[in-house]
Write a protein that binds this DNA or RNA. Sequence first.
DNA 1: CCGGTCCTAAAACCTAAGTATGCTCCTCTC
DNA 2: GAGAGGAGCATACTTAGGTTTTAGGACCGG
Lengths: 221, 221
Amino acid sequence: MIGRSTSPRNVASAEEPIVYVVDDDASVRDALRSLFRSVGLRVEVFGSAPEFLQSKLPDVASCLILDIRLPRLSGLDFQVDLARAGIHIPIIFMTGHGDIPMTVRAMKAGAVDFLTKPFRDQDMLDAVAAAIERDRNSRDEAKILSDLHARFGTLTAREREVMALVTAGLMNKQVAAEIGIAEITVKIHRGQIMRKMAAKSLADLVKMAQTLGLQRAAPPQ
Amino acid sequence: MIGRSTSPRNVASAEEPIVYVVDDDASVRDALRSLFRSVGLRVEVFGSAPEFLQSKLPDVASCLILDIRLPRLSGLDFQVDLARAGIHIPIIFMTGHGDIPMTVRAMKAGAVDFLTKPFRDQDMLDAVAAAIERDRNSRDEAKILSDLHARFGTLTAREREVMALVTAGLMNKQVAAEIGIAEITVKIHRGQIMRKMAAKSLADLVKMAQTLGLQRAAPPQ
DNA sequence: CCGGTCCTAAAACCTAAGTATGCTCCTCTC
DNA sequence: GAGAGGAGCATACTTAGGTTTTAGGACCGG
């Protein structure tokens, strides 16, 4: 919700999305590859989880189709590994003989869908469309957040402190009293903060602080 | 994130939570009732969905244990009905013979858990604890939001317009130009807005506008 | 028709915010 | 050890924000 005013929407949608398929069964891989190609989607297939991990993932909207029963690692454990590794990609599970606890676990962990084989092509395509859309949105948000963090990173410790207090609604003199400096110094910091954060107004800065989850460090005791 | 400064946390947790059980099997109802009572939870049991609907739901954290296979209405359809009726209560499904598509549908619709009978008591208690916690949080948020909406409701049309523009970061003179009135009038509206919304600072007001999802109605063309 | 609310706005006034210039002091680095 | 960057502060000045008082016109319900 910040900084979107003039920038084009859906940054991550500039390039065509990719569907990754991880399944140890070659016939399933081939079938899915041709299914997705038939609707004009880019596809990358892998026979195992490590293969997928070794490939470099371009920065475009994508999703992962995962068989729940993989050679070494279960699809569910792989889902956890990905999350822990900071790879947040929407996952669609496939299973030939899954059970309900598995399904619940996968969905709780954020899976987009859980399809039982054999599934209808359309169900898979619908799931992929939803997953890609979800990834597009989360990429857009992540982009905004990382830009914001980058700018916030250029602030000095003092400036961050002042920013937190200012966006908490304190007046310059209150900020000055709180951290024990002169009001004029607060004003100077404040000007620097506005420049570095590229905030066009206080309202703007407050929204950035919200997005960053900024809170005043020291309550008034 | 607004107005929590001095108010006690977890407003909805002031009273003890309630667990609602809807199952057509009396033995299941009895078993669950004694299970929850054994850990000190308040329980209300119902033999059918309509019975549950007719009971009045006190404003305390609660959750609903629902059998997926109910006499007339399926548990899944009832879940949808509740959402449509604006009754947002965390649901834990139970099933003796559910399948994966059912599970996926329920989880996608926001179910907290989906337990297969027979389940371990501890699994149910864990699910209930998670559901109650979720409801507590959503009630706290809903409380804050409804308070905010109530205050926003006291604003006149003009005041809302000015609030949107001011919290978008426009200066008084810009707001005045935008809606074609004098700057002094904007100041007067602004003061009124601060009073009615009980905002202690502009930062405060901006956060409220964010929570309300307020956006400037008319872009600068 | 009267009172209330809303919207408007001018005059007067005060406080808060923001900028520029100039200077000191410290610390870290090249 | 010289320069860069950070932090601090004062003076001076401008602009923005905010309140109070006073008041006119529109509209609505009793």
